[in-house]
Design a protein around this nucleic acid. Sequence first.
DNA 1: TTAGGGTTAG
Length: 582
Amino acid sequence: MEGEKGGRKSAEYEAVVSAGRHLKRLQQAHAHLVVTGCYRSRALLTKLLTLSCAAGSIAYTRRLIRSVADPDSFLFNSLINASSKFGFSHDTILFYRRMLHSRIAPSSYTFTSVIKACADISHLRLGTLVHSHVFVFGYVSDSFVQAALVTFYAKSCKPRVARKVFDEMPQRNIVAWNSMISGYEQNGLAREAVEVFNKIRETKVEPDSATFVSVLSACSQLGSLHLGCWIHECIVESGITMDVFLATSLVNMFSRCGDVGKAREVFDSINEGNVVLWTAMISGYGMHGYGVEAMEVFRRMKARGVVPNSVTFVVVLSACAHAGLIDEGRAVFATMKQEYGVVPSVEHHVCMVDMLGRGGLLNEAYKYVKGLRPEELVPAVWTAMLGACKMHKNFDIGVEVAEHVINAEPENPGNYVLLSNMYALAGRMDRVASVRKVMIQRGLKKQVGYSTIDIDNRSYLFSMGDKFHPETNEIYRYLDELMWKCKVAGYAPVLELAMHEVEEEEREYALRYHSEKLAVAFGLMKTGNGVILRVVKNLRICEDCHSAFKFISVVTNREIIVRDKIRFHHFREGSCSCLDYW
DNA sequence: TTAGGGTTAG
């Protein structure tokens, strides 16, 4: 009899499990449990709850838990874990509150899940409160809870607090290290992330795939190719399997560090790529201005049966915009909606405005902007339109658009600089002065531009007019000579974008010592013929530097690759890969 | 029979 009973229970369990993540089937299984009288079984209820979370139905999960008179510790923990894992963070916190009200003590399992929920919604106040509960209930030395706290503080923009928790850990497994590396990387502290990675190598802990994914993101942020290549070597040496996550990170890293050829090599070495990998490769070509190659990969992707998603279309449209492929871009936008049913998002609209605007179709671009719904008129749309007006020197639309940009983002100093430039180009110097006045009144300062260049595995940082480098005098002298040679070859400084309140001679001086020029001069001084210079700039490259680098590539016979805020520029033999679409 | 931490594309 006992065996039969056990067998019957098992069949019920099987019925719940086989319903899987399908809400309808779970509800049928639930009904069956009620009919057979098995609905009081805690194990079956627990399974039902976790599966309904997995099925994405938090409403059904809530109904189920309400039907349980006295949920026990096991049930709460399962519920808290599942709701947190499947992204129902707010519910996780509510379930946790209910658990405390029921006077059921949380465990380390409870805390890891609740802390993850707080991390996912970056709820600093709540997470800090939960941290205090961790002390009260005595789980402060639990390594899982500590790792979760590191991630929580990092995701709540408190990397220093994350580091404090990390430093206080008596034992650190690879997950704890990974939490700290990705925590730094996500807060824009790429150098710190690489430092932590280096520290792991002093321990006996072996890096895993996630370690490399995070540290590769840090390399991408820095744009440091030598660092990225070194991590690549570490991956090969570690013998770790090249999974699709790792391959995607490598493709990204090589693209964002300026070696799209290497990115392609990694991409080609993977047989079964998913949409993320294909999108990364297309994005890589796009940011380098290789629109034709981007479109070719996009075509092959579709031929392979990999279905493009919303992000894929953003990178494809962006590639078209940066390569002047307007007709292709229009066609892609049409198929996106018709064939793939992707609803255009704000990002797609920005790409379309950017593409039409860069292509000189300013009226069409402006018509497109005016056709958008009010909620779609985000600052990025206006900024794209403004960039186009500046590029094609259309001051009438430009000034109008600039006013919208300021209204949309009154705290962004970059917008005032754009507006000021627009007025200056239109010859309205009175307006230039008044914009500057507003900036001063509002306490807004221009973002400081800086450039980095890697030479002999070391990274050097330059900012405009800075004289901190020990070889400053040599660099400035070298640059003066270089610019003189460029002038002989036909270079004329693009003065109108320099600071407008200074005299012409000073304006040229200010332009001459822009951070990217200092970095290039230093690179030329320190490297031999044939070495490609790779410079990373935090802002967009200025128009004058862009013009100067074309001449420098001729007079020095060097290739210069500059990564600016939005894309790459390859200067070779007097021209730039962006074809001045920038 | 039910439950734990980190990572990927613009």
